[in-house]
Design a protein around this nucleic acid. Structure first.
Length: 570
DNA sequence: AGTTTCGGCGCC
DNA sequence: AAAGGGCGCCGAAACT
């Protein structure tokens, strides 16, 4: 990702015009700011520019895409500001360009505007950013300062790679939002009818759900609403069975006639409310589902979608994701991404060796530490990454630690740092915010389980307010979070580079990236391009591995499937 | 009546 | 047998 070629900056103006300026290799202005009338034309007329510096990709790029203009690379100042503030341990501070300028000049620092929630069927993809615009000259001042702040980080080269990679991710996200995921509403409707039966007028439950609710009621001997947990718990209690909740894993093994229809009801109910007819109505237009991808939407760097539950498409619903006639979906899935990333960041010799092969990593681990029991090996590895604290996981963790000491020590150290409130970073330098307590008892709280202060009333809940992104006020929870953060976040670092590389290959083809979900990417392309895309994914994965982690024996294989329908992939 | 939280479950 | 990370979404319940 050498930033060799020409760099310009731009800032859209209120009246639809645009300010632009050339930048030198040092990131400082290399010429005067000039004004032009048309944003799209300003970019289109400068094909020699390989990186555009702007305040916000979400502000600029959808508009460029709407006029058919793409850019090679960009640098998103407000995204970089967020990453830099995080690295500096100042994540609580406003991250708009205007705020950055205020800090720089010792002037006022405006708070960040609140974000608006997604609305179904919104005309333009991505929410319109609400931060204040800045004149280009001011923006350039912030940009120059950010260049200096990159140099002050622990690993300037990695930090520069991180901001560049996430900016690339934002381009990918905007392009995915513009493209949309091919979606056959007719197939979806057929599927719903098959699973749920007819809809009744009035918007009530469809036939199959009503039947299952009747079966549940019959089994209990009275009217029970299976969609009301309190009602179900009460009904079980009356039948002499005590349950703490109606979670599936808790009721599945109960010996009662209501269990079977109840579990089936919950499964179908979920489809109905989350991916039923009204979802279809709200989120699918003109044969495309547009989940509004947002790169870097989470603390760990994973993406989120801003509507329609884009990252939670149930397996059964994937039947509706169908390529256009003559086109294919290349569905690619990183194999055992998290342990491979752990191998790369911890440099554990044993784990690097097994991760240096493309074959099933869990199988290899099991042969070394678990007498060939792959399931146990997988649980142990995931337990180490997620911070499992009880059950078989602990025993398995000990076995893992004996064989892969550096790997386990790496996540243990992250957990300890998290518990102690120290900063924890991904490989490229994305920073996990330390817990900040609004109260004053942060020190003695360390290591004490939550359950002790949990019951002490609303006042303590008030005092336990954390930086957004924290799952719990428990210091152990912070440890688990930090433990997971270094792996999940470093994996996110790598996937950004992967997407950037893949995007560059696809730029010369009809192929387009249409979906991305943590470790899985879908490219929609003409049938004739499919094999090229498959190869491009392999190459992009290896390139991303080298760029992210440097020289490493770790391989990053993908399982790919060329299909017409998403449901047929694996 | 409108807004926030909770319970449950989908995905990784 | 039981509980560990990240998310989003929906309706109902619990509030203001």
């Amino acid at each position: 990702m050498a930033d060799t070629a020409e760099r310009w900056a731009l800032a859209p103006a209120e009246d639809g015009g645009v300010e632009i300026a050339p930048l030198g290799p040092d990131g400082l202005p290399a010429g005067p700011v000039r004004r032009e009338g048309d944003l799209g034309a300003a970019v289109r007329d400068r094909p020699e520019v390989t990186r555009w510096v702007w305040r916000s990709t979400a502000e600029v790029y959808p508009r460029l895409l709407a006029t058919g203009v793409r850019v090679e690379r960009c640098y998103d100042i407000e995204d970089a500001e967020t990453l830099l503030l995080g690295h500096e341990g100042r994540l609580g501070e406003p991250r708009s360009a205007a705020a950055a300028l205020g800090r720089l000049r010792g002037g006022p620092v405006p708070p960040d505007p609140p974000q608006r929630a997604a609305e179904p069927g919104a005309q333009s993809p991505l929410f319109e950013p609400q931060s204040v615009r800045l004149p280009l000259a001011d923006l350039l001042e912030v940009y120059a300062d950010q260049q200096r702040r990159h140099d002050a980080t622990a690993h300037p080269d990695r930090m520069r790679l991180l901001t560049a990679a996430e900016s690339a991710g934002m381009l990918v996200a905007a392009e995915m939002n513009a493209a949309g995921l091919p979606w056959r509403a007719d197939v979806h409707r057929e599927l719903l009818h098959e699973l749920l039966g007819e809809r009744y007028a009035g918007g009530g439950e469809p036939r199959r759900l009503a039947e299952l609710a009747d079966e549940v009621s019959a089994a209990f001997g009275r009217r029970v609403r299976p969609d009301l947990p309190a009602d179900v718990v009460k009904a079980f209690a009356q039948a002499g069975i005590k349950v703490r909740s109606t979670r599936r894993w808790e009721i599945e093994s109960l010996d009662h006639a209501a269990v079977k229809p109840l579990v089936e009801y919950k499964k179908l109910y979920r489809i109905w409310v989350a991916h039923g007819w009204s979802w279809l109505q709200d989120w699918v237009r003109d044969g495309r589902f547009r989940p509004e991808f947002l790169a870097g939407g989470t603390v760990t760097g994973r993406w989120v979608t801003n509507g329609g539950g884009g990252l939670q498409i149930p397996k059964v619903i994937r039947r509706a994701v169908v390529a256009d006639p003559g086109w294919r979906l290349v569905v690619a899935d990183a194999d055992q991404m998290e342990p491979r990333v752990l191998a790369a960041i911890s440099r554990d010799p044993g784990l690097m060796e097994v991760a240096g092969r493309e074959s099933d990593l869990y199988q290899s681990v099991s042969e070394r530490a678990f007498s060939g029991d792959r399931e146990q090996a997988k649980l142990a590895v995931l337990g180490a990454v997620y911070g499992q604290t009880s059950g078989d996981g602990l025993k398995n963790l000990a076995a893992l630690r004996r064989r892969f000491p550096k790997a386990v020590a790496y996540v243990d150290e992250a957990a300890r740092a998290g518990e102690e409130g120290r900063l924890v970073r991904t490989w490229l330098g994305r920073t996990c915010p330390p817990a900040v307590r609004t109260g004053d008892d942060s020190v003695e709280e360390a290591g004490i389980p939550l359950s002790e202060d949990e019951g002490s009333g609303p006042a303590s809940a008030e005092a336990q307010e954390w930086v957004p992104g924290y799952a719990s006020s428990n210091s152990r929870a912070r440890g688990r979070f930090a433990r997971n953060f270094v792996v999940q976040g470093s994996a996110a670092d790598w996937t950004l580079l992967l997407l950037a590389a893949l995007r560059r290959t696809c730029a010369g083809m009809a192929a387009e990236l249409v979906f991305f979900q943590h470790d899985e990417v879908i490219v929609h392309c003409p049938e004739a391009e499919a094999e090229t895309v498959v190869a491009a994914i392999r190459e992009a994965a290896e390139l991303a591995g080298r760029l992210t982690f440097g020289e490493t024996p770790v391989r990053f294989p993908f399982s790919t499937a060329v299909v017409e329908c998403y449901a047929d992939a694996k």
